[in-house]
Each structure stands twice: as structure tokens, then as C-alpha cells.
Write a protein that binds this DNA or RNA. Structure first.
Lengths: 150, 150
DNA sequence: TAACAATAATTGTTGAAACAAGTAAATGAG
DNA sequence: CTCATTTACTTGTTTCAACAATTATTGTTA
């Protein structure tokens, strides 16, 4: 027996609130390493696929090109990544991690593993599976809807 | 039988990605009414409790005071809310919706109901309950953790 | 009551998202 | 090959988040 309110804005607000909490929490922990969550995500993706163009990296981290470019500006200022000329395309850059960036990654990875273990404590595997499935369904609903409207 | 990877960053990233999709989608729809999702949430809370101080409103929408103040600046510029002197405390304002704001709310509410119906399509009540439960558990885990660390 | 602490709001700053507009280089069609 | 189009990236602008510092008012207490 469920109320109509199951399908109202509270779903969106709860998702948003939790997301904010997660980001705020992780950001507060990452401060120690003088890095933000957004910057970390870019580093993480770079560590998985080095020497990549900004366009591809932007797609991988799900941000638009200007946003990624400005995150890279910051990471470059911190000497964690480098933009090198792309030999095949003079419009493009080849982004890669520096030694300092690789080193930082080694320290931050275990920290985040611990933090996530804390965050999902007391949530059963089954609940987590359902949670992810619902997220993917919402994802799909919106993506499909956006395509339909085009 | 689940992998170790159930408890890794992918949870956070999926949550973040979905949240971004929802916000992007709703924002694109709200453009018609020349309003953003953040601004809408403030209006909605105001409609539930009018004549409130900025401090309390900030708590209600889970934003800090400077952030809320700037959203109110925008809403005031758009003539959707008004700041009136608080009679009991000359430091504080009493924020309330204008006629224009009340009118806008009447138009936007049904739109958002429709949008949320689309967003959660194909998700069973049971899945939705679990989804919300997991969000609340994550919420609690982080909130407790933050308290512990203080 | 005078001094001090707490509170409500604002301003400044940094980081980030999203979009528009611009530049330079690459590509494709005639 | 030339010219139009597309592509990769940058810059500008608006909106928002979070934090620090400041102003004005209120509450407290010695």
C-alpha cells in the first residue's frame, strides 16, 4: 500500500541531498591532498587511459569540454598533469599524468576505498544491486526521453 | 555472488551521474519558466512556509546562508519573492512569495509531477522503496561519521 | 550599563557546470 | 586545389556551492 507521494519530487530531492552529502564528505577528506573530488575523478580516468585528448577525457568523466579544460588548468597548475602537443592533430592536446600525479593517485586510492566502505556500511548486497538498478533505470528513462524530444 | 567492486567508487559515480542527469533534465524543462531547479526548490519551500527568515529557509533547502542569499537575489530580481523587514529582529528579513511567485508555482507544479512520472517509469514500488532506503542509509552513515569525527 | 559573545545577513573568493561564441586546424565536396 | 564545414580547444558569462571575513543587531554578563 503506497501513497501517491512515492512518485513525487522527494525522489529527486533525496537523490540530490545524498549526492551532495557524498561529495561534501569526500571533498572534506580530499582536502588533505589539496585536491577536489572533480579533480580526483579526472586523475583517476587519466590513470586508466593515459595520453588522451581533452575531448575524449571530457566524455569519460561526463563533463563538457570547457569544464574539463578548466579542471585541467587547475591540475596543470598543481603539476599533476601535463598537456603535450598531439603529434597527429595539432588542434588537440595529449593529456597525461606527471610523476607527481601518479604518486598522488597511489596515496588517494586506498583512502577512497576506506571511505566508500564506510558510506555503504549496513547496506546488503541485494539492496545495493537494487539501488544501482534503479539508478540505471532513471538514467535510461531520461536518456530515452531526451532522444525522443529531439 | 558479488564482486568486490560492489563497494567501490562506482556507487558514488553512478549516483553522481544520475543526479546530474535529473538536474540537467529538469533544468532544461524549467527554462520555459525562466527559472532554475535551485530557484524552484526555494520557491517550493517558501510556498510551504511563507514569511520565514533567510537562515531558516537556508536550513530547509539544505544550502548555506550565502548561497541562499544569492538565490534570493535572483528571485527578487525576477519579482518572484520579496524581502521585508522582520519586525522582531532588525537583523533578519522576512522572505515571502509575491503574487507572481504564487502564480508561477501553480504552473510549474503539474509540469514537475509529469516529469517525475516519466523519470521513475518502469520502477516498481518495491524497487523505489529500496532505492530510498539505501539513500537514507548512506545519508545516515555519512552524518554519523561526520559526528564521530568532530 | 559597558564590554563581549552570538546571530542574521552580505561580500569576496575559489571551484565547478553549462552554454555561447570565438580561433585555429583538419576534413570533405566540388 | 579551394572553399565550406567540422572539429579541438579556449574564453566569456551566468548560476551555484562552500568557506572566510565583515557589518549590524541582539543577547548576556560582569
Amino acid at each position: 500500500m503506497y501513497m501517491f507521494t512515492t512518485y513525487d519530487e522527494s525522489v529527486g530531492q533525496l537523490t540530490n541531498q545524498t549526492n551532495k552529502l557524498i561529495m561534501r564528505y569526500l571533498n572534506s577528506k580530499l582536502e588533505l591532498y589539496d585536491i577536489t573530488l572533480e579533480q580526483w575523478i579526472v586523475l583517476l580516468k587519466l590513470s586508466q587511459q593515459d595520453k588522451i585528448t581533452q575531448k575524449k577525457l571530457a566524455e569519460n568523466v561526463d563533463k563538457d569540454q570547457p569544464t574539463l579544460a578548466r579542471i585541467l588548468d587547475i591540475l596543470e597548475r598543481k603539476k599533476l598533469v601535463e598537456r603535450k602537443p598531439n603529434e597527429k592533430d595539432r588542434r588537440a592536446f595529449s593529456v597525461q599524468m606527471t610523476e607527481k600525479g601518479i604518486n598522488l593517485k597511489k596515496h588517494v586510492t586506498p583512502l577512497l576505498e576506506n571511505l566508500f566502505a564506510t558510506i555503504v556500511e549496513g547496506i546488503s548486497d541485494e539492496e545495493m544491486e537494487t539501488y544501482k538498478r534503479v539508478l540505471l533505470k532513471i538514467n535510461r528513462n531520461i536518456t530515452i526521453q531526451e532522444k525522443v524530444e529531439k
